[in-house]
Computed example of a mutant assay.
Amino acid sequence: MIAWKQRKVREVTDRYDNLRIPVAANLRVSGTTPYYGANGIQDYVDGYTHDGEFILVAEDGANDLKNYPVRCVKGRIWVNNHAHVLQGKYDSADNKFLACAISQADIESLLVGGGRAKLNAENLMDMNLLLPNKAEQIRIGKYFAQLDHLITLHQRKIDKLKNLKKAMLEKMFPKKGSVIPEIRFNGFANAWEQRKLGDMGSTFTGLSGKTKEDFGHGDAQFITYMNVFSNPVANLEMTEAVEIDAKQNSVKKGDVFFTTSSETPEEVGMSCVMPENKNNIYLNSFCFGYRPTEKFDLDYLAYVLRADSFRKEMTFLAQGISRYNISKNKVMEVSIPIPNLEEQTMVGRYFSILNNLITLHQRKLDMLKKLKSACLSEMFI
């Protein structure tokens, strides 16, 4: 086994910062060449500044100093003046390996300046790295390149599914003033009803009379604010402990939870549905509950309340300046579109499957990122 050797970055790379050209956004000519800044691709332009395989290292304006922006890129690129451009010397360094090695170095300790920390070229080129022989570098570099490729593929799948979900939330529910959705399943032609939430159920409050000492222990759980905000259907693993309290309102299957406030009007009135009955479970104090008296398909109910038309109603009702709030009485005045139960089930199942696919790819993506992080930690000391 051949020991790795310590080398300075300047010994194993050439720097091509002199070829960089910053171009203001309004002066860029649209094209197919990726335009790189400190944190990655900012635009696509005509022309190029560099052609080949390079390592880009943020010079200033990095958005994450702990996971400093370092990437290996290949082909024709345009680089502005916020990223250093390095290329490994052919006889001693592999670019993919170097990108990994530099990303694992303690770059934060080398930064200078205040709010906009800067990595000076001299500090970058004087950085010490441990390098194996080039053959081993190539094998390690290829391994991480394959991991990055898989990560990119899963991220693209997630993005496509999220875009599809966003589009369908707009098109599979009637817009305001309409009783027919733009897209619907074959075999359904009847107009949908528009009915006020307040005519189909009643509200209840979340936890009350509690202090911070009451939380974090006990045999009961409560649905957290972030659970409601993040999930159309409540995630029963996203609960926190609290003592059993018979004076509180217990939640049950089919209940809907609404957030009452947020920092932006677009995020007020986010909702989720309770998917099953569970003993001794409450709702957090920053949300209110809604208990329907009508029969709904629960998946349909979860997603009609996330549909574009309903979300616009919530944004319109939001009130505030630095923090926005919503009145539960106003929410109860809002109408939602309701097809027959059979069509509800079809629509609800469609969105449930779509959401499960997004979750599945997100889990795979998270696993790949953890694997990459673990391997980087083990391989680079």
Rank of each mutant, 00 (worst) to 15 (best):
M238V: 03
E11H: 08
V9I: 12
P22V: 11
Y143H: 13
Y290Q: 07
F316A: 14
V85I: 13
N355Y: 03
P174V: 06
N163W: 00
P275V: 09
I244K: 14
A38K: 02
A234R: 02
G209P: 03
E53C: 07
N279D: 15
M332R: 04
R323G: 06
Q319A: 11
F351C: 04
P275C: 07
W4F: 12
E333A: 09
G114T: 11
Q42D: 06
V304Q: 04
L164E: 03
I338R: 03
K364P: 01
N18A: 15
G115C: 06
K278E: 11
L86T: 00
M238K: 10
N186K: 13
E313L: 05
G218F: 08
D245Y: 02
P337E: 04
Q194N: 13
Y290P: 03
S335M: 04
T264G: 05
K252F: 08
E108G: 05
V331L: 14
G115I: 10
S352W: 08
T203P: 02
G88T: 04
E378K: 15
C100V: 05
R20H: 03
I183L: 15
K66Y: 09
L283W: 03
A246Y: 02
T293Q: 09
E267G: 03
L150R: 06
V304A: 08
K253A: 07
I338D: 01
L357A: 14
D366R: 06
D366Y: 02
G254K: 08
K247Q: 13
H217P: 04
I336H: 05
D255T: 04
Y35Q: 05
M379I: 12
C375S: 13
L317P: 04
A62G: 08
A189T: 14
K118N: 14
L365M: 12
D60C: 11
M168H: 07
D159E: 15
E343F: 10
G114F: 01
T259W: 00
T260G: 15
I358P: 04
D51Q: 10
K369S: 01
R156M: 11
E53R: 13
E182V: 14
I326M: 09
Q137I: 10
S373G: 06
M127I: 01
K312H: 07
I281Y: 00
C375W: 01
C287G: 09
P339C: 10
L129V: 09
G115L: 07
D91T: 09
N355Q: 12
N128D: 11
G47M: 12
I102A: 03
S250K: 13
S322F: 02
Y90M: 10
T203L: 07
M314P: 02
N227T: 11
N81M: 09
L317C: 08
